[in-house]
Nucleic acid binder design. Structure first.
Lengths: 134, 134
DNA sequence: CTTGACCCTGTAGTTGCTACAGGGTGTAGA
DNA sequence: TCTACACCCTGTAGCAACTACAGGGTCAAG
């Protein structure tokens, strides 16, 4: 399997596959006589795993940990669970932040009277304590 | 006002202030005889504006546009309103994405039986189509 | 007169890719 | 056989939006 096939099979760009290899997430595959990368099923499985975890918003560092953990089949699953839970907490925090921000932005936009910039409530709200210029 | 004072007055790091100057968001201030940056009220107002917009999640590029618009007091407020509305749409999309992702992650975590990694449902879910290794 | 807190410039690092530049390889059609 | 084209290679630079040095200079207090 050449890099282009692996990439399209996992909805990844070729450059990204090479990038994952460079940072040590994907092991270097065998090479053909023309120095082309030749991938096998294990590479496909590993890259699928990486992509899925990335789609779920895990950082590459978290993916790296998950991969290490998944290689040790006898180990307890709790470390995996822990990483996922930390990630869930982060998502909750982001949603809360964005929602609060959304409320405020909505309020600001609602105050727009479509006049000139001089009377613009949006601009005013953005610069809460403007001291008379100069 | 020295850079450290300006920075702490706006909850900004000194390096970030210099960074804003470098990318042309904050005009270069006068210098003291010792070559220290000397800021005035207009700088404080402008940096407050930038920080507030950043806190609301506007990109630096959007902040740049807002600053340009706010400098032209006679202009219509609609362009400002437009930028804010586009931003609001983006926030809504992010919240929707994160919420969907949260639901799935929650489901995955809920399936954890705290056994060994070999039986880990989280790992399984992450690698949906694993082909027998090697 | 020295210690420490501040200031300066310039460069490199962060995350997770993406986009070249400048080459080599493999195959299908004229 | 030539050649066009899609694919592959390495290496480097770029994106956002900072942050963190390194290696210096300045200034007020004790």
């Amino acid at each position: 399997m050449k890099i282009g096939e692996l990439a399209s099979a996992t909805a990844t760009k070729v450059e990204t596959v090479r990038y994952y290899e460079k940072i040590g997430l994907l092991p270097p595959p065998a090479r053909t006589s023309a120095n082309y990368r030749a991938y096998g099923h294990d590479h496909l499985a590993r890259l699928s795993f990486i992509r899925r975890a990335r789609d779920l918003g895990f950082t590459l560092e978290a993916v790296r940990e998950l991969l290490t953990l998944s290689d040790d089949k006898a180990q307890s699953c709790d470390a995996v669970d822990g990483i996922a839970r930390v990630h869930l907490t982060e998502i909750d925090r982001k949603v809360a932040d964005l929602t609060a921000l959304r409320v405020e932005l909505d309020r600001i936009i609602g105050s727009c009277r479509h006049g000139t910039v001089a009377d613009c409530k949006i601009i005013e709200t953005l610069a809460p304590r403007t001291v008379p210029a100069k």
